[in-house]
């Protein structure tokens, strides 16, 4: 119950903010009868209305995971964000091995397997991408290549 009420409220607020920013869209002098504002405003209004409906008649709560699992998920998200930033400066092999190992450990908490999965995936996928598909990946940080 509570989840859907919060969800509905959040959707309504975001939708109203969306409508508000849509009214600020610049129009050019070549405007057509509808203009660039109308459609976003329509979409936002429908979403706001549905948000209110969901908040008023909520479904049953889903099974939210325990706090520990939420922690694991948060770690996974952080690791993926770090991976996004590191792929370019650090090359493919090292970040991939680390991130794959951490994700593997989050799914099945056994350290040796996770390490093996990380290294194996990193090297294996590098070969597939580089040589079978011909993608321009950089293996190692630029420092090592001089």
């Amino acid at each position: 119950m509570a989840s859907d009420r919060i969800f509905g409220a959040v959707v309504t607020l975001v939708a109203l903010a969306y409508v508000a920013s849509a009214t600020q869209i610049q129009t050019s002098f070549l405007a057509d009868p509808v203009g660039p504002r109308m459609f976003p405003i329509m979409v936002g209004s429908v979403a706001a209305l549905c948000g209110i409906l969901v908040a008023l008649s909520p479904d049953e709560d889903p099974d939210w995971p325990a706090l520990r699992t939420l922690g694991a998920l948060a770690i996974a998200v952080l690791v993926l964000v770090a991976y996004a930033y590191s792929l370019k400066p650090l090359g493919f092999l090292i970040p991939t091995a680390i991130v794959a190992a951490i994700l593997s450990y989050q799914i099945n908490p056994r350290k040796p397997q996770a390490a093996m999965a990380g290294v194996g995936l990193s090297v294996g996928l590098f070969f597939i991408f580089k040589f079978a598909l011909g993608l321009g990946l950089v293996a190692l940080p630029a420092v090592f290549n001089g």
Binding site: V99, A100, I107, L121, L125
Partner: peptide, 16 residues
């Protein structure tokens, strides 16, 4: 193929 190899693999393929 166990999920602890498969899912990290899927993630890496998605990223690349």
């Amino acid at each position: 193929v166990p999920p602890w190899v498969l899912l990290p693999g899927v993630t890496m393929i998605s990223f690349v």
